[in-house]
Design a protein around this nucleic acid. Structure first.
Lengths: 124, 124
DNA sequence: CCTTGACTTGGAGCGCACTCCAAGTCGCAG
DNA sequence: CTGCGACTTGGAGTGCGCTCCAAGTCAAGG
């Protein structure tokens, strides 16, 4: 069980097999996934760890192309840590701005919800 | 100044004129926007208030089709407040789940950032 | 040998939310 | 009247991120 089929990797990561192939094709992984003699992909624990990092970046809204840039930096090896850090910090700022914007919009929606719950009947 | 051109409405709402027309065509507004004798749209303060509500829903991630359903309920007039409330509450739950997911992913990313900042050099 | 099922590929297709284009209209300034 | 700029329309195009399809390969079971 030291490596997983694409179906197993899909289950583990919560992605679909389609998406796993797509990420690999699109350069989001650090290298091509190993193959069994049958030609089937075999995912290692390291692959899964990286894919989880990709998933974290993706589900915080980082575009595919930025994930690809980050992957390229990591792939290039030691020496560009400052660039990686800069990329992550920039992303973090975007995410935080979004979180606070969504939060404030949500409070406005909550206010409207409260009006409906009190049957004060707003016009919208 | 009791009504605005599409360019002014765009500036006020932060949307583009294209998007304002698109929203109207797609049934996201409560009714067709009034026209000047020239045929140009004239946005009232009420229009802008509604568009701001639409913007709040959209930027918290509500899909166009759900905004359209909400608009349809409001357009239908009094009597369906329970449905409107249900729609907003369902949306709010989705948003809150997303906020907490993004938050936890962000904390994981922050951990990685901390590693880089301490020059401990993670492998990714 | 045949079937089954899990996989492979290149490339096409899809849904969403805009975004833009071409051609035309309108009102006004010069 | 001419030109200009802001607008109008239907419909096409764009970018993103998948998502799926057709045709094929492989290994194992019967």
């Amino acid at each position: 069980m030291t490596s997983l089929s694409i179906a197993e990797a899909a289950e583990q990561t919560g992605l679909t097999a389609h998406t796993l192939r797509y990420y690999e094709r699109d350069g989001l992984l650090l290298h091509s996934v190993e193959r069994a003699s049958s030609g089937h992909r075999r995912y290692t624990a390291d692959d899964l760890r990286w894919i989880e990092m990709v998933t974290r970046l993706r589900s915080t809204g980082m575009p595919i192309r930025d994930v690809r840039r980050y992957a390229a930096l990591v792939r290039a090896g030691a020496g560009n840590e400052a660039e990686r850090l800069a990329l992550l910090l920039a992303h973090r700022e975007v995410v935080e701005r979004q979180l606070s914007e969504v939060g404030s919009h949500l409070r406005a929606i909550d206010y409207k919800i409260a009006l409906y719950e009190n049957k004060v009947s707003p016009e919208g």
